[in-house]
């Protein structure tokens, strides 16, 4: 079965080349050249992942992402101008799964796409993990907190899963990168930190009123044992 990508970037020639490249790697590729087209394509079913350029005419990538995240957990990889930290941080805060700085090496983009997809659509492990008031369903990758459903992006889910599987132990940032994003951290990379901060925001304090995820400076993160 072919996975279907939506590639939203205003550089038409680049899109055509990337389409050829990804198709040769076995993907189906749809294209959008501005934010409105992207939103339109996103309404159609059948997408497995979106590659979203931040700088797009009409509606920029961040706004497209914000719109998408209202009701969808579709994996998103942002293309950001390198060095533009605000775009990157904002993108991750708005729920992008990963980002690739532009101009990107297509092999690297492909690797990230595969990594994110493997986690989102990979063979589902089964079973529930229950910790405090959290209930993680690995089958459909959903989270219930005190019985209420909490919307998590696929990457946030992976990070929480890893932390809960190693509850009470410190998980290094590198391990979190590997397990949630399927890659090593790169220079200037704060993706995992951003995902953790999103998780903290969504989960709030634990029943005892404490911070659920503790930062262990210089090492990584730890899910608190009550």
């Amino acid at each position: 079965m072919h996975n279907t990508l939506l590639l939203a970037d205003d550089d038409i020639e680049l899109c055509a080349l990337l389409k050829e490249y990804f198709e040769s790697e076995g993907f189906d590729v749809r294209l959008a050249h501005d934010g409105l087209e992207a939103l339109e394509e996103l309404r159609k079913p059948g997408l497995d992942l979106v590659v979203l350029d931040v700088m797009m005419p009409e509606v920029n990538g961040l706004d497209v992402l914000k719109e998408l995240r209202r009701d969808s957990r579709l994996p998103v990889i942002m293309l950001t101008a390198r060095g533009d930290d605000m775009d990157r941080i904002l993108g991750l805060e708005l729920g992008a799964d990963d980002y690739v700085p532009k101009p990107c090496n297509p092999r690297e983009l492909l690797a990230r796409i595969r990594a994110v997809m493997r986690r989102a659509h990979g063979p589902a492990e089964h079973g529930l993990i229950q910790v405090d008031d959290l209930e993680l369903n690995q089958g459909n990758r959903t989270l219930r907190m005190a019985g209420e459903a909490v919307e998590l992006t696929s990457t946030e889910f992976s990070i929480l899963l890893t932390l809960l599987q190693h509850r009470g132990e410190v998980v290094s940032k590198r391990d979190l990168y590997m397990s949630a994003l399927g890659r090593e951290p790169v220079p200037h990379d704060r993706s995992v930190d951003m995902h953790v901060s999103n998780l903290r925001r969504k989960l709030g304090a634990d029943p005892a009123g404490e911070n659920r995820i503790e930062t262990i400076r210089g090492i990584g993160y730890q899910y608190r044992v009550a």
């Binding site: 550089d11 680049l14 080349l17 990337l18 050829e20 040769s24 532009k102 101009p103 090496n105 297509p106």
Partner: peptide, 17 residues
Amino acid sequence: LRSPLARMSVALEIARK
């Protein structure tokens, strides 16, 4: 310069393939 560079690197990968 960035756009042609980006296209170049994709074209290069396609050539390799």
